[in-house]
Simulated assay, not measured.
Amino acid sequence: MIDLATWNLSVPVGTPAVTVDTPKLVGGYQDGYFRSGDTLFFWAPVTGSRTDNAIYPRTELRETYANGAVHNWTYTQADNFLRAALTVDQVPSSGKIVIGQIHCYGSTEPLLKLEYQYKEKTKNGNIVAKFRLTPTSEPEVIQIATGVLLKERFTYTIHLTPSGNLTVNAHEMQWGSKLDPSWNGKQLYFKAGVYTQDNTGYATEGGAATFYKLQIAHDKKA
């Protein structure tokens, strides 16, 4: 079983999109967009509703405390990890879904998006990091791994150290960078699931993924 006690869930229904709180999620919440058990299944159709300030639909977890309160943190306080093992099961016509993030509280611009990008021509996908060096800079797009098939199981780890070193391991490849000090003091949080990067098409189009492992850790400095 994957522990859901550190997450809430956004599902693409309602206006704005509905958030399922942590206690309800831990209690076994399931619907047509999300199923839990030994694995977690996420489905976000292109026709789904959206959260405030978003242009695309998502079925995505957001970091919380066990009581349901949102959990935001500053990176200098701990070694911060998001670890996952998953398969990407379906992509929209754009070929793109976001599968993990470090977001910034009160901002529409995340520090990091980890995105799967499927190429119809090659019948496989790349794993790409979209990274903002500063809170106000445009994202750099970094290709981390290539040749990832649909329904192929792979792992990723996002690691942000107290000194601001960011490392992403995905599909047995690695990329790293150093945060600009302007991120110091910003309230950050992890997200994971399916954020479909498309909003046009039929209700059968969208992003889907199955997570076999999903875990957050904030290891405090001694």
Rank of each mutant, 00 (worst) to 15 (best):
I127T: 10
H103Q: 13
A44R: 12
A209N: 05
A66P: 05
T200Q: 14
T155G: 15
N67Q: 09
L133V: 13
T22K: 04
Q215K: 12
A217C: 01
I102S: 07
V70E: 03
H218K: 13
Y29V: 06
Y116N: 11
F34P: 10
I99T: 06
E140G: 07
A85G: 11
V128I: 15
D79H: 13
N67A: 08
T76S: 12
N199S: 15
A84C: 15
I144Q: 08
Y116D: 11
I102P: 01
G201E: 13
Y195S: 02
L86F: 14
I97P: 00
D38L: 06
L82Y: 05
Q101K: 15
E172S: 15
E152H: 13
Y29P: 06
G125C: 04
S10N: 07
V20Y: 14
L214A: 08
T47W: 03
V141L: 02
V148L: 09
G100I: 05
G201Q: 11
F131P: 00
N67G: 06
M1W: 02
K213T: 12
T47G: 01
Q187H: 04
V168Q: 12
G185N: 04
Y65Q: 07
L166P: 01
G27V: 00
D3G: 01
Q77H: 10
I97T: 06
Y75D: 09
Y65A: 04
A217Q: 14
S10H: 07
K121C: 00
A222L: 04
V128G: 02
W175T: 12
K96W: 00
T74W: 01
G164M: 11
S94V: 11
A222R: 02
P139Q: 11
R50G: 08
G193N: 08
Q143P: 05
K119A: 09
G28M: 11
P45K: 09
N165R: 13
T136W: 10
A170M: 03
N72H: 14
L188M: 11
Q215G: 00
L9F: 10
I55P: 03
Q30M: 08
P16C: 05
I216K: 11
H218N: 12
V148D: 03
L86Y: 13
G164F: 09
T64S: 12
N67W: 07
Y118L: 04
Q215P: 00
Q90D: 03
R62L: 11
Y75H: 15
L188Q: 02
Y156K: 14
K191L: 01
K151I: 00
K96Q: 13
